[in-house]
Amino acid sequence: MSEQQFIPKSYFNKIKHGSVTWSSPSNIALVKYWGKKDHQIPENPSISFTLDHCKTTTTLGYSKKDNSDSFSFDVFLDGKQKDDFKPKIETFFKRIERYVPFLRDYHFKIETSNTFPHSSGIASSASGMSALALCLMSIENELNDFQNESEESQDNFNKKASFLARLGSGSACRSIEGDLIVWGTHKDIEGSSDLFGVKYPYTVHQNFKNYQDTILLVDKGEKQVSSTVGHNLMHNHPFAIRRFEQAHENMSKLINIFKIGDVDTFIKIVESEALTLHAMMMTSMPYFILMKPNTLEIINKIWAYRTRTNSKVCFTLDAGANVHVLYPESEKDSVLEFIRTELVNYCQNGHFICDQIGFGAQLISD
């Protein structure tokens, strides 16, 4: 499939105004995406767990304008106007205009809220951009007088929504569906694409069903280096080529791991991927560190607990200081007790979020 297939030929309906609301979750990558080519194309494939409770809800109101000279929109976060969000959304609109050419015809009111702190390392750009992309797709369906009644039409809707979301934030393309999503072309994964995320197509053992993710909020502030800057530093990185090869290798290994339920090897890959991500940051030029001292304290505590109890708990990290604690549902009570007694003191203001695997975005109202 090429980008050309996402360009609409024409619209059948004329709509003056309306609104649509979607909620879309964040996701946590198991094999990390770090480094991209032009047009938000990943340098390596990635796979993620879709989350459930950590999500963004976006209402997109739209009203017909008299002219189509420019984009027109206002943005609100938790009811407060956020003009500092406008440059990123305008960049997004410019990237996707050829695929949703009605953008200049309407004034949009974008009202959004998160169930988690903004810029807390829980990929608010992933949930936010995917929710906005889904709202735009619902408008396109209205303009086409098109209802997603068949499985094929729903699949096409999801693919284009994921495609659009990717152009706003790469990882956003993994938030449309769940529970395991692959983004990036990989030789061993049928249907995988650089253009959009796809549901993982192979057998997943019961061991990985209802997996839990408790996010420890070590630092709820803005990152000192944005993910966009970090991705760009992979250009000419001395270890980039080997890193991209490693990601492909780990994706291949996970196919059998998911099939047979090998949680021990899963842990090794997931933790290695997290540390490799941060190693790439520490060895770029300029170099930077997003982990905090308490991040390392938590990691060491998890390792000690796992050795002491033979638990299957592990950690992963996004591009930030916060720690995602992953564990099977069967260990939920014991791991949460461990978090409350040994890890909560390393969280900012004692805050953590309990989440689990989810199954993608939801249309709230149309």
Rank of each mutant, 00 (worst) to 15 (best):
H17E: 14
V204P: 02
I255H: 07
K253N: 15
E271S: 13
I364V: 15
I298S: 07
Y106Q: 04
S272P: 08
F157D: 05
S70E: 11
S150C: 09
K86N: 15
D188M: 05
H17V: 00
L132N: 04
L136T: 07
I15S: 09
G230D: 04
S153P: 13
S284A: 13
E111G: 00
I15H: 11
D66A: 13
M129Y: 15
P42C: 06
D52T: 03
N210F: 13
I15Q: 11
F76A: 06
I298M: 04
G221N: 05
S150A: 06
N232W: 05
C347L: 01
D145C: 06
L51K: 04
K64H: 12
L326M: 14
G128P: 00
K312E: 14
K86V: 14
H17T: 09
D262K: 11
I47L: 09
E271P: 03
R306C: 07
S311L: 11
R243G: 12
A279I: 00
T115W: 06
S48T: 10
E43R: 10
T203V: 05
Q5C: 06
F102D: 06
Y202P: 00
E151Y: 13
P117Y: 11
K65R: 15
Y211P: 04
P117F: 11
E140Y: 08
L343S: 02
S70T: 06
N141L: 06
S192N: 02
P201R: 05
W34G: 04
K82Y: 09
E97R: 01
A321T: 00
C347A: 06
F163G: 09
I257F: 09
Y106S: 10
G18C: 03
M280D: 01
H53E: 11
A126P: 09
G197Y: 02
Y11R: 09
M285C: 12
E249F: 13
N256K: 13
I110C: 09
V270K: 05
V198L: 10
I215R: 03
T316C: 08
S72L: 07
H53S: 10
N13R: 11
D355V: 01
F73C: 10
V75A: 08
A29F: 03
S46D: 03
D69F: 14
L275M: 15
P201C: 06
S68H: 13
S334R: 03
F6S: 05
F108P: 02
N256E: 14
S227Q: 04
T58E: 04
I302N: 07
S130H: 02
V20R: 01
L136G: 07
S192K: 02
G320Q: 09
N27M: 03
S334T: 08
G221F: 01
L51F: 08
S26H: 03
K32N: 06
V198D: 00
V229L: 14
F244D: 12
